[in-house]
Design a protein around this nucleic acid. Structure first.
Lengths: 257, 257
DNA sequence: TCCCATGGTTTGTCCGACAAAGTCAATCGA
DNA sequence: TCGATTGACTTTGTCGGACAAACCATGGGA
């Protein structure tokens, strides 16, 4: 045979049938011919339409299910569906951990993302968002001595802020970093007693600034809030240039749902 | 039976076996016990270990394959692998399109993300990145009359910039928006003859600023570059509040690989 | 009218089988 | 001796059929 690279024809390869099945169904959804919530049909029926065995259909379905394009109803039947943001975000977060990004990368990116988010929120925030954040802060005050719960609420606070910003692209862009960044606050609150109150204070002042549509104050307090995290991180004896621990990947991405 | 909601015990449900298989393998990879590139074993072998049928193993594998945690080598055997960024990004982009985000959301988010990116790039840019961007600009100058190719190079330029910034979290955060944003420049270049030269000039000036580590100039030109896009978009008669067209989803996300 | 039984439908899993394609080693020819 | 060819072995992709469990609707009985 001739040496590699100088052939006239490339090797022709047939995609596997299950992949064609998956792509066909995915295309229907992406192009809008199949809308979210519509029933796809039974496995046997799909097998008949595509002219393949049920096992082959099932393998295609598995791929789509993982991608979030189809899901099972309570009756276990197949319905078209749109990929959920939260799922994509946790996958990204996991990928970041597996690729061993450092806390410095996480901090720098979060700083940029949260500053942009709060700037938009100051302009676009509505009453319901203000109420939700108010509720979040009240709940936080009630669990000051529970670092785990407190950090969940911290993550939620920033997610609410992002929703208040009214920009889903930005919201989605910040979420993967956020899911890794804010949980680390738990470790800081555990080691530094002043961590939790400072966090709460920052949240409250950010909320006040939003309510007053005061962009400068909001930016100032968000920055301080994040710089606080950094100081706390370093004071807790950690190095910004360590990679994020694998542990954080395990709590993410509800594997099935 | 009792009415719903007041039962003492929740319904106990067994996850499907193929899901358990997928989760078990995924866990091995996430926790690092299985490293990327390592062989997983054959389907028959896995079936033997898990005590399930080969078909069941295959369904589990499909899910993992879609998630990017395993991949097939040239010999078609199974190897552990890490989810590729590019794949996650295109999935996010597709999801944004399907959720009908508007050009305004895209523009605002891109502005924030690219400004942050260029700010980091000014500090961290290295020789290889400068060279790659130089090459990109030279190539762009050679295809000024081909909007499609030109826009690919535009997208690439900003990706190179992001790589130059040396922050993978930021790089990953900006990519989904970027994959939708820059392709729209094609439409603008097609309608406005001054579009392409202005784009090139902006790229060149940004590159010069990076080389001189001049943060102010880099920020200025990036901003102008993006504002130009916006002006072009509006001058082309488009409305920022339209949702991004479904068409853009179809060119994304190489479905299998 | 309300409850339960019953049957039909669909999924999840198993078994066995085979062709295609890849791997590896031994064999044959120059 | 070295390289190409052959052929056995392995593994995947697909098929067909089978069955238990879970769900749904329907109809009969209290």
């Amino acid at each position: 045979m001739a040496a590699g690279g100088s052939e006239r024809f490339e090797k022709i390869q047939m995609p596997a049938a299950y992949r064609l099945v998956a792509e066909a169904i995915e295309r229907e959804i992406v192009t809008g011919r199949l809308r979210a919530g519509e029933a796809i049909g039974t496995e046997v029926e799909l097998g008949r339409q595509f002219g393949v065995n049920r096992s082959t259909v099932r393998e295609g379905i598995r791929a789509l299910e993982e991608g979030g394009y189809v899901s099972r109803g309570p009756d276990r039947r197949l319905y078209a569906s749109l990929p959920r943001y939260s799922r994509l975000s946790s996958r990204m977060s996991r990928a970041m951990v597996l690729h061993e990004v450092t806390f410095r990368e996480l901090y720098d990116a979060t700083l940029a993302l949260e500053m942009a988010t709060v700037a938009h929120a100051v302009v676009n925030v509505g009453e319901e968002s203000l109420a939700a954040m108010e509720k979040n802060i009240a709940e936080s005050e009630a669990v000051m001595d529970d670092p785990v719960r407190l950090c969940e609420l911290d993550t939620d606070f920033h997610a609410l802020l992002a929703k208040a910003a009214g920009n889903r692209v930005l919201e989605l862009a910040r979420e993967p970093a956020s899911l890794l960044f804010f949980p680390t606050a738990e470790m800081i609150c555990r080691r530094l007693p002043e961590g939790a109150p400072r966090m709460l204070q920052a949240h409250r002042l950010i909320l006040d600034a939003l309510r007053a549509h005061d962009a400068a104050a909001a930016a100032t307090w968000m920055r301080r809030h994040l710089v606080d995290w950094r100081k706390g991180f370093e004071r807790a004896g950690r190095d910004l240039d360590e990679p994020v621990e694998r542990v954080y990947a395990r709590t993410l991405a509800p594997p099935g749902e």
